[in-house]
Write a protein that binds this DNA or RNA. Sequence first.
DNA 1: GTCGGGTACTTTTTT
DNA 2: AGTACCCGAC
Length: 727
Amino acid sequence: MSSVPLDDLNPAQRAAVLAGDGPILILAGAGSGKTRTITYRIAHILAERKAQPGEVMAVTFTNKAAAEMRERIAVLLGNATRFPMVSTFHSACARILRQEIAALGYDPGFSIIDEGDSLSLLRRLVEESALPGAPAVELIRARIDQAKNEALFPEELAARAANQNETAIAELYRLYQERLRAMNALDFGDLLLLTYRLFEREPDALARWQARAAHLLVDEYQDTNRVQYLIVRALSARTGNLCVVGDEDQSIYRWRGADIRNILDFERDFPNAIIFKLEQNYRSTKTILAAAGGVIRNNRERKPKALWTENADGELVTWYTGLTERDEAEYVAREIARLLASLRAADIVVFYRVNAQSRVLEEALVRRRIPYYIVGGVRFYDHREVRDLLAYLKVIANPKDALSLERMIGAPPRGIGDKTIEVMAALAARDELSLFEAMGRLESVSTVALRIAKTATALASWMRELVERAGQMTVRAILDEVIAHSGFLAYLEGLADGTTRRQNVQEMLSAASEFDAEHGTGALSEFLERIALVSDADQLADQGGRVALMTLHTSKGLEYPAVFIAGMEEGLFPHPRSQDSSEEIEEERRLCYVGMTRARQYLYLTNTVSRELYGVRQQSRPSRFMAEIDPALIRRIAPERAGAAAVKLAMPGESYVDYTDSQLGDGNGDGEPDSLAIGARVIHPTFGPGIIRRREGRGDSAKAWVDFGRAGVKLLVIKFAKLRPIA
DNA sequence: GTCGGGTACTTTTTT
DNA sequence: AGTACCCGAC
């Protein structure tokens, strides 16, 4: 086995790779080669035969990052036959639990339920229990999730409850866990919480996995939460070989339970820890780094550090102010079109704070015929027809999964509705059966119409038989049979957008075939697990030749030659719901820092004077983060005559660059101005027919207020709005 | 009782 | 785009 090429590393990286046993903290600034370091360290440990592949475990933040790391290790090690376990926290826990969960009273075929299922389950429990003082279901779910992230079980939460409200939440948490167990189902939080409980209660199981994690490496350590910390601590307790990598400036998941103190207090938690600092940035220009540094410097909860680069100064950071979000989007699209002369579309990315911002940006890109794709947002596996099919698979993998069973029964509709399911549930409760078993015995209940009971019996026996055969079948074969036997295609015909839905079903069949090629037969649970645990960032498949759009949260770990961050406004970024405490503001600031440091060469920050979000139009001021950037690093572009509103935005030391025709490029403002007088009727590609109510400005910045009736009154820049006059 | 069609609402970020 | 909820048709 060849040794690892250490010449590829700088002195700090090399020291971290070569460091011996014991706890290690690698503080790795943005773009400092953190993944490279962790990968080389793993390869080095294996190449020097300090450990077998089966004794090394690495945890990353996304499946994609895990796959990349595995690939890079494979390259470094050449043709090794065995590789270490590299996966996300959730996948690692799922894997551990598939093997060990019997000790906790679940079956290894457990389902993993998503947030939607979790909410509907809770909704039902709230209804059934009729507890006084129960708050909104979403809040309850959030609190339960929070408890799980903090490694608190229902009893512990109940013990801490200080009022009726909290008592109700703790009680619902207990009922929720009870119901999940009856369904042999785990939610995301359970994957972590139950792994922790397993390690706490089962010394043998813990010892088995400690051996697998004789060398444990954790990436993005700044975003671990309490229960993850406890799992890491338990796993590494035997050997003490724990290497964590992170950057507290990039911690952006506080709201999900991430505890920045895990990284800030590492030295205290692991006393003999050796600390390495990676401070040389290889990614960005000096200008971008300085701009981002100006922002993050304002955080108090951080360790001082000096990130530097040998890269060129590069271009100034562009700050564009649009009149409206549409104007902003037009600018972004126009500028992307310009960049495409020298960059590939895949080199360009647009970030935003909330998913709702994506639509306007998409529309602008479509108008410019710029290929793009959205990372995250609505997931493929969230489409109704896909979820329907998945419900069948989930019942086959885990017949106790009552939620999936109910969904499956109704897709396609077979005459078994809510009332019949209630009867089934009552029968199940009385005779201590699963809902699935009760379905097969409906004919014994006199209140159910015989025709319906027979349908249920037939469905139950078909499914029961499929459950038995599934162990010898590929996922594709199971899906094929489900589709053929259930009348699913006919059902799809009846749904709106039949074509897209059929395509989605087709895509799912392809995904199944692809999976089968790797796994053979009897791997249904694994297939479902993979689907349940795909992250938004994982879907960032190499969509070569397209501009990427995503939230700032999804941007973590990525880098692009050109980065746009849209919506740099107070009231949006920092988000209004994250302004209550300095901790929240600091997290928003870190999010800004993460976004800015994704950029290699070009960084664009944009805001608007007026933005419509969730149906409300509001005046908006630039984000406070803009004022934290040294104005000398900024090239400012603001609208020519946006009136007093834009002038008020001016901050000391800003150099304004006005709109000129050359900067505007060949924006094809069609529509004769005269035909757009007040009172004129127009048609808009998105909003449909409307009437011009008011006009303002001249030339390129001319705007119109257009009343679109039900869609409301929109403020449009005539040059960019595709308004067509109609008679 | 079932089911489809209508409406309103979603939404901060996500494994 | 999905879902919750309401109403009317069968």
